[in-house]
Amino acid sequence: MEVRTIKVFTTVDNINLHTQVVDMSMTYGQQFGPTYLDGADVTKIKPHNSHEGKTFYVLPNDDTLRVEAFEYYHTTDPSFLGRYMSALNHTKKWKYPQVNGLTSIKWADNNCYLATALLTLQQIELKFNPPALQDAYYRARAGEAANFCALILAYCNKTVGELGDVRETMSYLFQHANLDSCKRVLNVVCKTCGQQQTTLKGVEAVMYMGTLSYEQFKKGVQIPCTCGKQATKYLVQQESPFVMMSAPPAQYELKHGTFTCASEYTGNYQCGHYKHITSKETLYCIDGALLTKSSEYKGPITDVFYKENSYTTTIK
């Protein structure tokens, strides 16, 4: 009895394709271990004539594949690729409408935090270190965002349907971005203890939790000093293409032309909904596939993004 075979390709990165001759009487799992086709788990399936010449994702289970996976995804987590594939199996079914010149995501599976993050990423200057993220990001900007969303979920250790947080998501993504040249110098002034300067680099240099107003941050924000008295913390120097200011959701007025974009969060910790506000020729609110415009805006804002380049204080 002759062994019926077909020729397929296996890959971990969709760049390096490895030619395989597979036995049609055995499952993919018996031949390769966990195997995925377009995100779908085909591990328990036997090869079919229609699979001839198709590319299958496999887990990096030998040295060659491990090197290829690390170079593309910059992670050695053995569960990463499987999590990416199972997320992709959902995100490829989502709709990605162009809204006001940006790629958004039609609401499904509690994905409003991903839509808000995706919209924000198209408006701030950011370059990702893992080629996987950078490639998928370019495709997302062009309207094909399924891979990018699935990668975000995998890097953030999230599953489809789980509630997510924009600030946490951005923080994970910033860790995989090139923020080497970003720098922030802060000064804390206390009447009792004097003053202390701190220099922050990388992710810490672009994120701040405690106030939404970048102007206020430049002037000074009140913080408790270690001595128990009130101290003032203010920005001395900022070198970065953008800054992200966050605070627990509270009524906040966004003035046209003073910011790049913002995240609105309605609801409580267990259950809520994100919308995205962007400042173009007027203010726009993007909620999944829905767009509304207004000249002014007041609502429960939790993150505001500002364009920056270089700032030095005039406070002496």
Rank of each mutant, 00 (worst) to 15 (best):
E2Y: 11
K7L: 10
K7T: 12
T10G: 05
D13F: 00
N16S: 05
L17D: 01
M24S: 08
S25P: 01
S25D: 15
M26S: 02
M26N: 00
Y28E: 07
Y28D: 04
G33L: 01
G33W: 00
P34V: 13
Y36N: 07
L37K: 12
D38K: 14
G39F: 07
G39E: 12
A40Q: 12
A40F: 14
D41N: 12
D41C: 08
V42P: 00
K44E: 09
H48P: 09
H51P: 00
T55H: 06
T55L: 07
V58F: 03
V58N: 03
P60L: 03
D62Q: 14
T64Y: 06
V67R: 11
E71M: 10
Y72P: 04
T75S: 00
F80T: 00
F80G: 00
R83V: 03
M85R: 11
L88W: 04
H90Y: 12
T91E: 00
K93E: 14
W94G: 02
W94V: 00
Y96W: 01
V99D: 00
N100A: 11
N110T: 05
Y113M: 04
L114N: 02
T116K: 00
L119T: 04
L119S: 02
I124N: 02
E125P: 07
K127V: 12
K127E: 12
P130F: 01
P130S: 08
Q134S: 09
Q134G: 02
D135M: 15
A136I: 02
A136K: 01
A146H: 07
N147L: 03
F148W: 00
F148M: 09
A150S: 01
L151E: 03
A154R: 02
N157M: 05
E162D: 05
M170Y: 03
M170P: 05
S171H: 11
Y172G: 13
F174K: 01
H176N: 09
A177H: 05
A177N: 00
A177F: 06
L179K: 03
L179N: 00
L179I: 08
D180E: 14
C182F: 12
C182W: 03
K183W: 05
K183C: 08
R184F: 09
V189N: 13
C190S: 04
C193P: 07
Q195N: 12
Q197S: 09
E204F: 06
A205L: 03
V206S: 02
M207I: 09
M207G: 01
M207V: 02
Y208R: 02
Y208G: 06
Y208S: 10
T211A: 10
E215S: 14
Q216S: 11
G220P: 10
V221I: 08
Q222S: 12
Q222L: 11
P224T: 15
P224Q: 13
C225N: 06
C227P: 04
C227E: 01
K229M: 07
T232R: 11
K233L: 12
Y234N: 05
Q237S: 11
Q238T: 07
E239Y: 12
P241M: 08
P241E: 08
F242L: 05
V243W: 02
M244G: 08
M245W: 03
S246Y: 04
S246R: 04
A250R: 08
A250D: 07
Y252P: 09
K255M: 13
H256R: 12
G257R: 08
F259Y: 03
T260K: 03
T260S: 05
T260R: 05
C261P: 08
C261Q: 04
Y265P: 01
T266W: 13
G267V: 15
Y269W: 14
Q270T: 15
Q270H: 13
C271V: 15
H273G: 05
Y274Q: 03
K275E: 04
I277K: 05
E281I: 00
L283R: 07
Y284I: 14
I286S: 07
G288H: 01
A289F: 01
S294P: 08
S295F: 11
K298W: 11
K298N: 12
P300S: 14
I301A: 05
D303G: 03
V304M: 08
F305T: 05
Y306N: 06
K307H: 11
E308T: 13
T314L: 12
